[in-house]
Write a protein that binds this DNA or RNA. Structure first.
Lengths: 116, 116
DNA sequence: CTCATATTTAACTAGATGGTTAAATATTTT
DNA sequence: AAAATATTTAACCATCTAGTTAAATATGAG
């Protein structure tokens, strides 16, 4: 199996593919929160939240700081930026293709372009 | 049964969390491709590719057009835009928090803000 | 009609995921 | 020291995933 290194995009997108985990990221996007604070509005058990936090942590989306008996979680925007970059790169490719087609159509406005 | 069936964020991010599927999206970002063309560079069986295409299709990331015995696949950037929007929204929240903190520090430059 | 090509569907499998409850660990409070 | 609080780890389970090979479907070509 040809598994190429992709800079953690698998982990980042996988982490974002769950509504509870996105909810956690949303909570952290407003500031630092403890595990309990982040867990409160979710309708799952604390161990389940703990696992979700682990997934986000391994994906690089949050950082944990132990403060006494609470763990304070902090959003880590760089990992999110990596996901965003991949998406924007491919949206841009598409838009450029679209622009090239538009340009072609402008020059050859009476005929439709070949399919390839 | 298939878990990620609609074009929601779960489905979009889940679809992007696999390198083979991202490779397919990359191929399509350069233009329309058939199933066979998209499958050629991947080191997995055709049925496996067919399933990946189904995942991308259900996530709204591509559209299929039957043309004789080939299926032509077209990238669908709107779904990607939805993923991007979620990411950018939360990066923005974070940056705004950061800006507010910066503004606070500017006004109260001799003291550090409370951790709260 | 028959053969070849393009793609999907079916049936199966090993391993991952997301949830649970119960127990363990670490720290603060009394 | 004992009790309370915050969080993780362990053990378990049902379902989902990503892959496989073999068979089915649909269309095109000779």
């Amino acid at each position: 199996m040809v598994k190429y290194f992709d800079g953690g995009l698998d982990a980042v997108f996988h982490a974002l593919a769950d509504p509870n985990r996105r909810h956690i990221v949303e909570a952290l996007s407003h500031g630092e929160r403890t595990v309990g604070e982040v867990a409160a509005p979710l309708s799952i058990s604390l161990p389940a939240v703990s696992k979700h936090i682990g997934v986000l942590e391994r994906a690089g989306l949050l950082r944990r700081r132990r403060d006494g008996r609470v763990h304070r979680l902090r959003f880590q925007p760089d990992a999110l930026a990596r996901g965003s970059e991949w998406i924007e790169t491919h949206r841009r490719f598409w838009e450029e293709s679209f622009d090239r087609l538009a340009g072609y159509l402008e020059k050859h406005s009476t005929q439709r372009p070949d399919k390839h």
